[in-house]
Design a protein around this nucleic acid. Structure first.
Lengths: 391, 391
DNA sequence: GATTTAGCTCAAGTAAGTTGAGCCTGCGCC
DNA sequence: GGCGCAGGCTCAACTTACTTGAGCTAAATC
């Protein structure tokens, strides 16, 4: 979470090899099926080096031959592709009342998802549950523990600052605990901790609508309203891991300038409906209300769409992303309605000629997005060279 | 400018060496004076490797011994520091009407600055002038051309989109030209092209108020209002090099929602004063007006400060920077007034306990900031390992 | 069917980092 | 005041992983 002053690490033979493995894997993932020579051209390595690395990766089970293809003259290419079950990543979303766990393979397909209610979310309980969930997931897919390359954890944030969200979203008992350390020890795995919006953004990249993109912004309906930003292939975290708190940005409303979250969030729609006597416990209930054109819901949408437009335009101009994605805990029809009714100004760096992607896209909606995203973080790391990995 | 899908490069011995040289230089710059053993501990390299690299760097003239220091037991440390004149960087700001060039040494000190008026800013004229300016700068400092490690160029943007700035800020004749290629050939140097705000942000990092920071946002008064963002040591460029167009973000005003630039920019203050019959050609004239408490200027400030507050709060919550810096072509008293009158909400990820830096800082003001920043980009590259440099 | 072309492998060569022994310096203890 | 010891540094041998160039193979072309 905290990537302040990353101690910059020198390169040696071993770290170069690790880097090159990731480079090769990255090219293979991008291409689907590809031969040694093409990887060599793309990476600037010699074919021999690529050959050696591929032999390694085959030995580790991360790759599998994927047929021959003859393209023009010359010997046919021996292609390789990912072996989906060659590596697994566990993703976990820890909420105050429940834990959602998900197991993803190398291609980002979900193999197993489960939800466990929590009486109490204190560190020992969560650590114990995670160990159990890890074993349960592995048992379900009948694969050995060594296939598990890491775990991603999504926990409520923001961290280290005074929040003003009214829901009790923070986890009590975690104030002075380093979750990565505690849970890494409990799981016996390398652990990555991330906020929900960044994780969800990564889920879209690994197996969703953002596949192949490396610069986009993801507006995520979670506990509040979050923003995950991928810039040149890297998640934006900020100096203290709190980047993307789009819910706090000031926007004009009928009642003056208010934080965006008071107009556009789960809590805000729930409150708007409650004022009209409609109690909503789960966002999936909005689907029916939307199809019935429920007036309080439509009224909420009418004020949410312009507020979200302003936010999206701000995001476009500050980040210059390839696209802006809307997703998270909001039914697809509601997200689609928002996208259809957001007016995006022509005066934007994103209003460029020759766009191939729409300026707004709908991402995966669902309760398990964050957990899958947590696993996606780990999957993504496998394919992304780390500039300064600790030895 | 365009860093889309950077073809990820594998590592080999030569590229590792280059990486390690930069790592070592980076640690030396950060520490000022430091011994081999400490660099080895910080970088994860062996002392022997560091020793070899330092021998190289001494041979290249980039370092110089900087005394011995005995710390406790053991042999005294042989320390090394940067040799400021070991490397030079040329920075150039190309405007429609003039070229400003600046020569920086390794420590970021300006050795030479000059301004040349332009009749015409077409590519051949600019290329010719640059060659002349390079030679003039080298002659002035009486150093050989081989000391020059690169050039940074700042040119008007944004690129590849429909602009709506009313000033004719774009350069005619450059539509289908790659400036890096043309000017690199003219100067016989590696060239980096960047926008003014990013360059100015880098100037602050190399030798200004942001020294030692690696996450901050820089609000820059240039042709319009720009934003340079450094995130984890890297400049944010966006998918098409247009990130940071903060002037376009929508903000509420007395006349409804307008782009920030219409309220806060050089053009906007000039227009506000012109409406009161005061014609301002150079921003330095604002200093006198401010000290005289000129009513139209104070009125402009009264509407600019809240608009800028909203932008700064948005920036804080989206980027989670260590601080937000205001700078560029606006006199220091005006910037200070803005900072003093911007109200920063408590509901922000930046309102954290234990801050050591103010949330708002004033950066270097001046006409040569962008040109120095252009050179600072090159200086910064010397100390920053490039994740995927082309061979 | 000969030729060309591209992919791949084998074997030797090279660059650069690591390891471990040993030297030097100067503080600190006896 | 001399000895011991810790830490910085260097020398030489070793290791890793990439590159280079020769040679083999298979398919498309002439």
């Amino acid at each position: 979470m905290n990537n302040q002053t990353p101690s910059i690490t020198g390169a040696n033979a071993g770290r170069s090899r690790q880097h090159n493995r990731q480079v090769v894997l990255g090219h293979i993932r991008k291409a689907g099926a590809i031969g040694r020579a093409e990887i060599a051209r793309a990476s600037g390595l010699s074919t021999q080096a690529v050959s050696n690395i591929i032999a390694d990766l085959l030995g580790d089970g991360l790759l599998r031959p994927s047929g021959h293809r003859s393209a023009g003259r010359g010997a046919p290419v021996t292609q390789y592709g990912l072996n989906p079950l060659g590596g697994l990543a566990l993703g976990v979303e820890v909420r105050p009342d429940a834990i959602i766990a998900s197991l993803l393979d190398l291609e980002g397909s979900s193999l197993f998802t489960t939800r466990t209610d929590l009486e109490c979310a204190d560190p020992p309980t969560v650590a114990g549950q995670l160990t159990r969930l890890r074993d349960q997931a592995l048992e379900h897919v009948e694969l050995p523990a060594r296939k598990l390359v890491g775990a991603g954890i999504v926990m409520p944030g923001p961290f280290g600052m005074r929040g003003f969200s009214e829901g009790a979203s923070d986890l009590p008992g975690w104030e002075n605990i380093d979750p990565a350390e505690l849970l890494g020890a409990a799981l016996a795995l390398p652990v990555t901790v991330e906020n929900d919006a960044n994780a969800a953004a990564m889920a879209e990249r690994v197996s969703g609508i953002a596949r192949g993109l490396d610069s986009y912004a993801y507006l995520y309906f979670g506990a509040g309203l979050g923003l995950g930003v991928l810039a040149a292939g890297c998640l934006m975290r900020g100096a203290h891991g709190n980047a993307g708190e789009v819910g706090y940005i000031p926007v004009p409303s009928a009642r003056g300038i208010v934080p965006l979250e008071t107009l556009v969030s789960r809590l805000s729609v729930r409150r708007a409906l409650a004022a009209a006597g409609i109690l909503v416990t789960d966002m999936s209930e909005l689907t029916a209300l939307y199809h019935a054109q429920s007036p309080p819901l439509m009224a909420w949408l009418d004020q949410a769409a312009p507020a979200l437009s302003l936010a999206a335009q701000t995001i476009e101009n500050l980040f210059d992303p390839q696209t802006v994605i809307l997703g998270g805990a909001m039914p697809a029809p509601v997200l689609d309605h928002l996208i259809d009714h957001m007016s995006m100004a022509e005066a934007s760096v994103s209003a460029r000629a020759g766009r191939t992607l729409p300026r707004l896209l709908r991402g995966t909606a669902g309760r398990t997005t964050a957990a899958q995203g947590a696993a996606a973080l780990v999957i993504n790391q496998i394919f992304t060279p780390q500039i300064s990995a600790q030895p």
